[in-house]
Each structure stands twice: as structure tokens, then as C-alpha cells.
Amino acid sequence: MVLHFILLLITTYFLGLSRSQLQVGFYDTTCPNAEAIVAGVVRDAAASDPNTAPVLLRLHFHDCFVEGCEGSILIDNGLETDERRAFGHQGVGGFEIIERAKSQLEAECPGTVSCADIVALAARDAVVVAKGPFYDVETGRRDGVVSNITLADGMPDVGESVLSLKDKFFQKGLNEKDLVLLSAAHTIGTAACFFMGQRLYTFPAEGGSDPSINPVLLPELKSTCPQNGDVNARLPIDRGSAETFDAQILQNIRSGFAVLQSDASLYQDEATRSVVDSYFVPFGPSFEADFGSSMVRMGRIGALTGTQGTIRRTCAAAFK
């Protein structure tokens, strides 16, 4: 407990340093069209591929949870040791969209807007195109240059217990409320059957299916993901509302209709369960406003600012 408290103090200190230098409208003078350019690229991408929004939202999360929000997940040295090839980053994409936005920004404001900031802005714009809330994004991040697959070993995983997830979020300076809200990003997008096998057929201590799965949902999941079936087949994560950013994912968690084990586990812990329930009481908090706040807090994790890091000219290249 003492160690956790010390870790929290250290994390809070560094988050405070980042927060003091990150600010909304950082590029208002140096590249006034920066946010509009990123938003335009995201809208164009989403118009041709409906999977754009969840992909970009997930990219921001995966970037921030490894060494902080500094764009290292974008680096591609063509090596098996590159961070982006980590097991925990399976299925992460959107790299070409970030590179497209970077190219346009370099044409307008050379060497000014970091790849890390593009990822953060693109995630917000992805939420908006999915009919979710607009929230102000703090900018001023600079890019890291280190890409190492081993640094991603601590990524949160869909098969982890809620206690493990809480601990990983705590180490990043985030709390139970942030865990619930950032997990609620699963309101859009799909998951591969690869991540469902254990929950459906070999759940620990049960020898069968996870008993927390609603009996109505279980045959639906098994139909899409039969045992020994195609592990690459995909299913909506938010049953009944997979293409719209809303609080339906939390209602699904409450009623046993959570598709992912990590989402279901949020209702098996007193602290996270109370957060989930708080969004369904009269005059309760705003899910949309709170989600935006949690995204902003996540966006401060390990941010490089001031003279730290660099501004990469090409997001896939560490030193260009």
C-alpha cells in the first residue's frame, strides 16, 4: 500500500509537469489550421472506412500506455523488435491515417506539429465522427525516438482481472473512474474471435463458459465464434450499438451483455460497479463529459514537452 502511494506521488508529479506545459490551442499561432487539418483527414478516412473511428481511438490508448503519449507506437524501423509489433498491440492500426495528416501538416507548417499530438487529436475527431462528444485536446507534446517491443509488456489485456487492470491504470496515475470510462471506448468497434476463445470455452475454474455472460448473449457469441472456428472473425463489442458512441456499452456491462471479459469484470468490483451504475441514476453525471475528461487525463501520461523529445517529420521514422 505504501509502495502504491509512493508510485502515485511520483506519477502525479510527472503528470503535473506535463500538464503545466500542455495546453488547449498550443498551435494557435504556429500552425492555426492544425486541428482542422487533422479533423479533415479523419472525416475523409471515416467516410471510406467505418472502422476508422475505433481504430484511431485504440491507437491513442495503446500509444499512451507504453512509455506515455509520445508517438513511439508509430515508429517502424522494419524490425521485429519495433514496439508496434508487440503482442499487446495486435490489431492496432490507423498508422497510414496519422501519416496522411502529418504529410499535410508538414506541407503547411514544417517541423511544427508532433506525431503524438496528431494521434491525440485524431482520437478526439474519431469520437466525433462516431456521434460522440467533442472535447478540447491539450497539445504541445513532442515525439519520442525509442521503439522497443519489450516496453509494451505491461499493456492492459482483455483477459485480465479487474484488480490487475486497476493496478495498471493506477500506475499511470488513473483511477477506477478512468478505467470504466476508457473501457467504454469499446462502445464502437469490433473484436476478433481470437480474444473470445477462453471466455467462451475454457474459462478458468469453470471448464466452460464465463458464467457472467447473459444466457441470451452466450449462443450469439458462440455462433459467431465457434470452437475451432475462424479466430479472425469479428463481432461487435457493443451489442446493439456498435457504430455509435454512447453509453450503451455500460448498460450492456450491467446486464451481462458485455462481450469482452475485461468489460464484464468492471461489474464484479465494488468500486468500478458503482461508477458504471452512477450513469443510470436520475441527475447523475454526464457520461459524455466524463469520457472527455478521462481522455484528457490519459493524454497527459508521460507526455514529452518543452525541450524533451523531438518533432518527427515522418511519423514512422524515429529520426526524420
Rank of each mutant, 00 (worst) to 15 (best):
A233K: 14
F194S: 13
L179F: 04
L182Y: 09
D178P: 12
G189N: 10
F245G: 06
R254V: 02
N228C: 00
R239S: 13
F194N: 11
P215S: 11
E243K: 12
M196I: 10
L218R: 12
I237K: 07
H186F: 07
I188S: 03
C225Q: 11
S212V: 08
A205I: 06
A205D: 15
C193V: 06
D230N: 15
N175E: 08
S255H: 05
Q227F: 13
A247Q: 09
P215M: 10
R239W: 13
V231G: 03
L200Q: 06
Q251K: 09
Q251P: 04
K172F: 08
V231T: 13
S212M: 03
T187A: 11
T244F: 08
K177F: 10
A191N: 06
K177L: 09
S255T: 05
V180C: 05
N252M: 03
A258M: 07
T202E: 13
P226K: 10
L179N: 04
E206I: 11
R239A: 13
F257S: 02
L181I: 02
T224S: 14
F203T: 05
T190G: 01
G229C: 10
C225P: 07
F257T: 09
L221T: 13
Y201K: 11
V216G: 15
S255F: 00
L217R: 04
P226M: 13
S223Q: 15
T224L: 11
Q198D: 11
P204R: 15
Q227L: 15
D178T: 07
P215R: 12
Y201I: 07
M196N: 02
K172S: 01
D210R: 11
D210P: 07
H186E: 09
S212A: 15
E220W: 12
S255L: 06
I237S: 01
P211A: 11
A185K: 06
L174Y: 09
G229W: 02
I237Y: 05
V216I: 14
S241Q: 15
I237E: 07
I253A: 00
P236K: 13
D230L: 15
D230Y: 14
A242D: 03
A191F: 01
P219A: 05
L179Q: 08
I188L: 02
L200M: 08
E220N: 10
D178G: 10
R254N: 00
I213N: 00
T244K: 08
T224N: 14
T187N: 05
D246V: 00
I237Q: 06
E220S: 12
A247V: 01
I249V: 11
V231D: 12
C193E: 03
G208N: 04
F245Y: 08
P219N: 09
N252E: 11
E206V: 14
S209T: 08
Q227M: 13
N228P: 05
L218D: 12
L200Y: 11
C193R: 05
I237P: 04
P204V: 14
L179W: 03
P211M: 06
I213V: 12
N252H: 09
Q227K: 14
P215V: 08
V180I: 10
L182D: 05
V216H: 13
S223I: 07
V216L: 15
Q251S: 12
R199N: 15
D246C: 06
G173S: 09
D238F: 03
G207V: 04
L179H: 07
F203A: 07
F257P: 06
V259C: 04
I213K: 04
C193D: 06
N214R: 03
G208Q: 01
F257G: 01
S241G: 15
I253P: 00
V259H: 00
